[in-house]
Design a binder for these strands. Structure first.
Lengths: 205, 205
DNA sequence: CCGGCGACTGTACTTTGGTTCAATGGATTC
DNA sequence: GAATCCATTGAACCAAAGTACAGTCGCCGG
């Protein structure tokens, strides 16, 4: 896996070299000509005081490689802004090498990476918000009628996935996905995946 | 570091043994007499369909060890509920050994662990709440992008109707319904009726 | 008057979804 | 050990969804 590190002044920290010895270092000025190809991670450093957009400016993201923000002064608002811009993660630019390696693993597998403190805040805010809502349990009946595997399939369908996508995700054949779906339709008395989606997502028909 | 695994029927999965060969396995019945001492992680399994509170019931947490929920059927609401109860993390009970080891490292250092899909939702929910940058506008925008007739069709599709049903309801041919749908998919940049339904019903994708 | 847009429809086609046969292996239960 | 449930897959098939290409009609603004 390739690593590309973008830094304003091309001043890499030693920890980066340790975590990614084979990384290619790029100054922001060189970005015009660089095209990222193949699997890898794009790391972009944000110096203290800089606006978040600077880190993404001029970065060719058509290759699909995840971008990780290396922030000198990480803070929650900055991280959220960066995530909204499509960044796969943010971490302290002075994070330890093993942390950087872990971040790379997570984001290169399609995951997001946020720091522990931000995570706590996100969780706190959300659970507080949920606590105020009346938790309707009657909507959960569908899960009780299905097997574990069927619940997994139902969730993916409800999220808009095609049979092929579900098959890939669960590492089974499309045929098996269809078999599960037929069973689900029967058990929940719905006629197709769209009505299943409505049921799972709690939309009254 | 010590690992304690609590399971209702003391039926450990082989992956657990692989991740934590020296773990001590406990049935729920034995909890009355067990006191956790020294550094370590308490893993508690939640079987499918069980209320979250079961996993914490009778667990002596005075020792300060983090508790991780091993859920057979992990889902967002459950994870949030568990976190509100003071759990340090939740993961799929069938997670790979290396994942379990990683979870152990994180939580034993005071971190929280949540799955990638939940993290995405938390980030999405929070950034939507803070700045209305990403989907907030998009979500109600669908109507503005469509013609009057297309809105009617979109609504019926979102409610689970088939093309034939829509045609009958609007007194047009099935062919015309398809034409409207093709236009709708194009305008809203979705690929099929299910994703359209999610968009119209305001479900986060 | 013309160009563009929206509503509407036809024929023909490809793709995806879903069902009907059928079968295997594991786990659990009686 | 038989019975049952679950997960898995194959081949074949039908139906629904969706696309491509093409065309008509009415309305509206320049």
């Amino acid at each position: 896996m390739q690593h590309w590190i973008i830094d304003r002044e091309a001043s890499p920290l030693p920890t980066w070299r340790e975590a990614m010895p084979a990384a290619q270092l790029l100054g922001r000025g060189q970005l015009g000509v660089v095209r990222f190809a193949g699997p890898g991670v794009i790391w972009s450093r944000l110096h203290a005081g800089e606006p978040v957009a600077n880190a993404l400016d001029g970065v060719d993201r058509s290759g699909g490689q995840p971008v990780v923000l290396l922030s000198d002064v990480p803070e929650e608002a900055q991280v959220l802004e960066a995530l909204a811009l499509g960044v796969a993660g943010c971490c302290n630019s002075r994070a330890a090498p093993e942390v950087l390696r872990q971040v790379a693993v997570v984001v290169s597998n399609g995951g997001l990476w946020v720091g522990q403190s931000l995570l706590r805040q996100l969780v706190g805010a959300t659970s507080r918000r949920l606590g105020q809502l009346p938790r309707d349990t009657e909507n959960d009946d569908w899960r009780l009628l299905l097997s574990e595997r069927e619940v997994q399939v139902a969730r993916l369908v409800a999220g808009g996935a095609s049979n092929k996508e579900i098959a890939d995700r669960l590492a089974i054949t499309e045929r098996t996905v269809k078999a599960h779906l037929t069973a689900i339709f029967e058990k929940l008395a719905v006629r197709d995946r769209l009505q299943l989606s409505l049921r799972v997502n709690g939309v009254r028909i």
